[in-house]
Amino acid sequence: MSAGSVQQFQESLSRLDTPSTVVTPEEFETELAEIIEPPAVGAELAFDGHSLSGLPVTLGPSPSQLREATTGVTGSRLSIASLGTVVVESSTDGDEFVALYPEFHVVVVKESEIRSTLSEAFEWLRSEFAAGRQSFVLATGPSSTGDMGALVQGVHGPERVHIVIVRDDE
């Protein structure tokens, strides 16, 4: 994906009051460790070259660890630059719970997984559905609702979100 897509993604995230950090593969672990607020839980990242195993993150958390966690860390194999949206796959590793339960969600995105538009994202989703992967959560910014009058964040998911964009190896 082009640097323009990263910039467009960050601009969309900024409009959603969602901070983002762009890192090189070499900076990944150090930067992520600084962003995480313990106690943290996570689901192993679904792309090669990066892992949460060296970080202060409990992988495969129990229900009690999930309840006690401040931070949940997941990966996203698809992001939509024009919307500031990340796509978290529901899996047996608990990605969905890790993404939605803690008050702070940190999402790791690879630069090459950012699509510019919703149309491009639908092409990716069609191929995933054809491969039998059919359960995804599309998240845009912190959880919020206006059902009760004023906008309230964190009612149905995390109050805060931070996106870590990992540059592709050059």
Rank of each mutant, 00 (worst) to 15 (best):
L16D: 08
D17Y: 13
D17H: 13
D17V: 03
S20V: 15
T21M: 04
T21W: 03
V22K: 07
V22Q: 11
V23C: 13
T24W: 12
T24M: 14
T24V: 14
P25N: 12
P25W: 08
E26H: 15
E26C: 11
E27H: 07
E27P: 11
E27V: 06
F28A: 06
E29H: 02
E29G: 04
E29Y: 02
T30C: 06
T30G: 13
L32Q: 02
L32E: 00
E34W: 01
E34H: 03
E34S: 10
I36K: 01
E37I: 14
E37Q: 14
E37L: 11
P38Y: 08
P38C: 06
P38Q: 08
P38F: 06
P39H: 06
A40N: 13
A40Q: 02
V41N: 05
V41W: 02
G42C: 14
A43Q: 08
E44W: 01
A46S: 14
F47P: 05
F47W: 12
F47I: 10
D48P: 14
G49E: 02
H50D: 04
H50Q: 13
H50R: 05
L52D: 05
S53E: 15
S53I: 07
G54S: 11
G54Y: 00
P56D: 06
V57H: 05
V57P: 07
V57G: 05
L59N: 09
L59E: 10
L59G: 10
G60V: 04
G60E: 10
P61V: 09
P61K: 03
P61Q: 07
S62D: 07
S62H: 03
P63V: 03
S64P: 01
Q65V: 04
L66M: 15
L66I: 07
R67P: 05
R67H: 10
E68C: 08
A69C: 13
T70E: 11
T70Y: 11
T70V: 15
G72L: 15
T74P: 13
G75Y: 09
G75N: 07
S76K: 01
S76A: 13
R77Q: 11
L78N: 03
L78R: 03
S79I: 02
I80S: 00
A81V: 10
A81Q: 05
A81H: 04
A81T: 07
S82M: 03
L83W: 03
L83C: 00
L83E: 00
G84M: 07
G84D: 04
G84P: 09
T85A: 02
V87P: 00
V88L: 04
V88I: 12
V88K: 01
V88F: 02
E89S: 06
E89M: 04
E89W: 00
E89H: 00
S90G: 11
S91T: 07
T92M: 09
T92D: 14
